[in-house]
Simulated assay, not measured.
Amino acid sequence: MSLQSGVRRTLRQALVSTRQHLHHQTTPKQTAPKQTAPKQISPKQTSPTSSSPVRFFSSSPRTPLRDKEGTSGKEGQYARTDHTIQVSYPGPASTQLPPTDNLVKGIGHGGVPTLPTFSLQGKVGVVTGGARGLGLVMGQGMVVSGASLAIVDLNKEEATKQASLILETFKRDNPSSDQIPTITAHYADVSDPSSVQACIQEIISAHGKIDGLVTSAGFTENFEAVSYPFDRVRKLWGVNVDGTWLFATEVAKHLIERGAKGSMVFIGSMSGAIVNVPQPQAPYNAAKAAVRHMASSLAVEWAKYGVRVNVISPGYMLTALTQKILDDNPDLKEKWTSLIPQGKMGKPEDLMGPVTFLLSDASSYVTGADLRVDGGYTCT
């Protein structure tokens, strides 16, 4: 008998044996019912009538647990939105905004060796929402890396003030530099096409060109979806989504007409990939998801022109505005940080390196990417 036929015979015998075993299992002998003792509960299980503490998390999702009233316990019950949390963003030009800390201290001293391709020397960058918060600090990082800067904001007075402070800091930290950046301030309502077009033309007149764009203008609010005023939803989408689209397409037109390469960095959020808890913010999350996919789509469409488009998705960042929110909701910081693997919120200056990398030639083969700066939040 050949080896091959022997193997086939062995397999047939195993199959017959398995079928007999299954038949035996499914067709038990008919016998008289026996009196059995009550089933004993394993120490790993909890009886519905037991006085033991109720466990709301089970190793098996197929075995629903019961609380003392007999209703099913909810696994992951703490990962829910909390309708009591309602934080309204006061708006870019509002006097309700907390004072900014202006510039990051200790950043900008020259003479530190680094890879030459990280330099933004000779480039002109535009940052929307650049008068405060993350946009302001990223703009400072761009200047430290050698770029000239156009700060765009709804509050031009604050933008002008910050432009002056950034320039003063650069001169102080680089007293021997013979290349002083040009830093200008510009007004724009990012959700209005005509305002955006006028702003872009003003920037080009002042700087002669645009090489990089950072779309940092945006805001969030916390309302339950069923009670969210629709006019506010439209405003939120207008700033976060329409504003990103309008600036990106206008800068792209400029780059394509010049036949120049360029880099755009959309400021998204980890909220575009996960659902934040416990605060309800569905429109913001959806808006940031739209920004992320917009970047991917434009990266593919504009690759042939040498225009790269990427996203930075920050996690919870401790800006002046965030600090005000946490002061009003003291339990919120603990809930947020408990879900961050690094155990802390980010600092605005944590975005300086990522934005410089994506705007510079060091990332010349990176486009359509989503760089998450969230302390590991979205990994869990």
Score class of each variant (00 low, 15 high):
residue 2 S to Q: 04
residue 2 S to T: 14
residue 3 L to Y: 15
residue 7 V to Y: 11
residue 11 L to I: 10
residue 12 R to E: 13
residue 14 A to C: 08
residue 14 A to W: 11
residue 16 V to I: 11
residue 21 H to T: 10
residue 24 H to C: 06
residue 24 H to S: 13
residue 27 T to H: 14
residue 27 T to M: 06
residue 29 K to L: 12
residue 30 Q to E: 05
residue 32 A to Q: 09
residue 39 K to D: 01
residue 41 I to R: 03
residue 43 P to T: 02
residue 44 K to A: 15
residue 46 T to K: 05
residue 46 T to S: 04
residue 50 S to M: 03
residue 51 S to A: 09
residue 56 F to C: 02
residue 58 S to L: 11
residue 58 S to W: 14
residue 59 S to L: 11
residue 62 R to K: 05
residue 62 R to M: 03
residue 72 S to C: 09
residue 74 K to A: 09
residue 75 E to C: 07
residue 81 T to M: 10
residue 83 H to P: 15
residue 84 T to W: 13
residue 84 T to F: 15
residue 88 S to Y: 11
residue 88 S to R: 14
residue 93 A to V: 11
residue 93 A to L: 08
residue 98 P to M: 01
residue 99 P to F: 06
residue 100 T to E: 10
residue 102 N to P: 00
residue 105 K to P: 03
residue 108 G to I: 05
residue 113 P to Y: 11
residue 113 P to C: 06
residue 114 T to I: 04
residue 116 P to Y: 10
residue 120 L to Q: 06
residue 128 T to Q: 04
residue 135 G to I: 01
residue 143 V to G: 06
residue 144 V to E: 10
residue 147 A to P: 00
residue 147 A to E: 00
residue 149 L to T: 01
residue 150 A to M: 01
residue 152 V to L: 09
residue 152 V to Y: 09
residue 154 L to D: 04
residue 161 K to F: 15
residue 167 L to N: 11
residue 168 E to V: 05
residue 173 D to P: 01
residue 173 D to S: 09
residue 174 N to Y: 13
residue 176 S to T: 09
residue 177 S to H: 04
residue 183 I to F: 14
residue 185 A to I: 09
residue 185 A to C: 12
residue 189 D to F: 15
residue 196 V to E: 06
residue 203 I to N: 00
residue 207 H to E: 01
residue 208 G to P: 08
residue 208 G to R: 03
residue 208 G to W: 07
residue 213 L to G: 03
residue 214 V to N: 00
residue 224 E to W: 08
residue 224 E to K: 05
residue 225 A to L: 15
residue 227 S to E: 12
residue 229 P to R: 02
residue 230 F to W: 13
residue 231 D to A: 14
residue 234 R to M: 12
residue 234 R to H: 13
residue 235 K to Y: 14
residue 236 L to R: 00
residue 238 G to N: 02
residue 242 D to I: 01
residue 243 G to R: 02
residue 243 G to Y: 07
residue 251 V to A: 08
residue 253 K to G: 01
residue 263 S to L: 08
residue 264 M to A: 11
residue 265 V to D: 03
residue 267 I to P: 00
residue 267 I to D: 00
residue 268 G to D: 01
residue 270 M to T: 08
residue 271 S to T: 07
residue 274 I to P: 07
residue 276 N to H: 06
residue 276 N to Q: 10
residue 277 V to P: 01
residue 281 Q to L: 06
residue 284 Y to W: 05
residue 291 V to M: 02
residue 292 R to D: 06
residue 295 A to D: 08
residue 305 Y to K: 04
residue 305 Y to Q: 11
residue 306 G to Q: 03
residue 308 R to E: 07
residue 313 S to E: 12
residue 318 L to N: 13
residue 318 L to F: 15
residue 323 Q to I: 11
residue 324 K to R: 09
residue 325 I to Y: 15
residue 331 D to Y: 12
residue 336 W to V: 07
residue 336 W to H: 12
residue 336 W to L: 14
residue 338 S to D: 10
residue 345 M to V: 05
residue 350 D to F: 13
residue 351 L to M: 07
residue 354 P to A: 12
residue 356 T to V: 14
residue 356 T to W: 03
residue 356 T to Y: 02
residue 357 F to R: 04
residue 360 S to G: 04
residue 363 S to I: 08
residue 363 S to W: 13
residue 364 S to K: 12
residue 368 G to Y: 12
residue 369 A to C: 10
residue 377 Y to G: 02
residue 378 T to D: 02
